[in-house]
Nucleic acid binder design. Sequence first.
DNA 1: TACCTTATTGATATTGATTACTAATAGCTA
DNA 2: TAGCTATTAGTAATCAATATCAATAAGGTA
Lengths: 132, 132
Amino acid sequence: MRNTKQKDLIMKTVHGHGQHPTADEVYQSLKLSNPKLSLATVYRNLNQFADNGELGRVVIDGEPTHFDIHTGEHSHAVCENCGKIMDIFDQGLQNRISEYFANIEGMTDFHLTRADLKFIGLCPECTAKKTS
Amino acid sequence: MRNTKQKDLIMKTVHGHGQHPTADEVYQSLKLSNPKLSLATVYRNLNQFADNGELGRVVIDGEPTHFDIHTGEHSHAVCENCGKIMDIFDQGLQNRISEYFANIEGMTDFHLTRADLKFIGLCPECTAKKTS
DNA sequence: TACCTTATTGATATTGATTACTAATAGCTA
DNA sequence: TAGCTATTAGTAATCAATATCAATAAGGTA
């Protein structure tokens, strides 16, 4: 895999974003300063990074794929109203899930590699709006 | 909400399917015997059922939305290779997740309504293929 | 039973996200 | 520096899903 300026820009943008950007969000925040950058290049590289394990993917019902700089075991909280995503780092929780791998493998005969856990509800802002 | 022959056919088809069909799979299995049925009607009604809580949605990276006749709390095992989905009914597991709601709400200020847990790996068939 | 109102349907156009394609470009290696 | 080839830019194509709207049919009413 060759190093290119585009790969570098894209990875830096994801890291600088602060949340969990989509391909288009990465593209939008780069195209002003890099008008020749192609959306296809952004998709191609984000997918490559995700397939390599250098980025995570967060897939949510009704939304384009989001990308995550955190590649270790963790969970997410997702707002059903506005789509906001928060990372949840809780080793106790992850351990509880991992402890279940053997059970699940026993009941399904699957060979498991990971789990994907999302807590779904309303973020603080949307909770406030709904109750006001 | 009016009762229609289409709603009835669609719901029966999901229940008769055995796995977790997509909208197009429901449509394909109905259109021979019901050539006038429209794909839009299938989408429309499956979404209505899911929004009503009469069906569940299973959203997997890179796949069209699958629908689930089980609407109670449960988890899924998903094959990363072929997309097979299995339901996991394990009250102990669900309890462990639910016990975490208060913690997560404390750390995120989200107001949670549910969790979505998927175990990801290879199904028995794909495990066999990969190791042979 | 016939009628009326309006939710629902069928058919198709449209949207939105993502991937495929291909000639031009630019990393890397010698 | 030259040459090989992975990668890119630009755009067309694909795929899932939704929007649109005239025609239809549920189901209440007289």
